[in-house]
Amino acid sequence: MASTIRVRAVAHGESTEVQSLIQHPMDSGFVKDKDGKLIPPHYIETVTFDWNGKRVFTAFWGPAVSKDPYLKFSFKGGKKGDTLKIGWSDNEGKSDETMATIL
């Protein structure tokens, strides 16, 4: 199964830069489908990043985050070969999780 999460984490000296792209519709609840019916809100609420069991980033999102959300941040520490765990959960209770190796 292909993951919904794509991550690129690169160690630069003392810090690691993380970029992630998650496949998700992020429906706002304000958009109508072709039959004129409102598409119900469906969006990621929480995204977490863990490195060596330490939480390095938490994002809380609302429906105003764009479809297939992109995120970039950096944290101190992390070296080539370390593992980063990324997980998300949405307002319908769906979730996904993946592991990425720091480059």
Binding site: A59, L71, K76
Partner: peptide
């Protein structure tokens, strides 16, 4: 959106909003 920045994480983020 609201992001929590733990100690050791840099206070800089990029994302895309509607």
């Amino acid at each position: 959106a609201c992001c929590q920045i733990p100690e050791g994480t840099e206070p800089a983020i990029s994302c895309r909003l509607k």
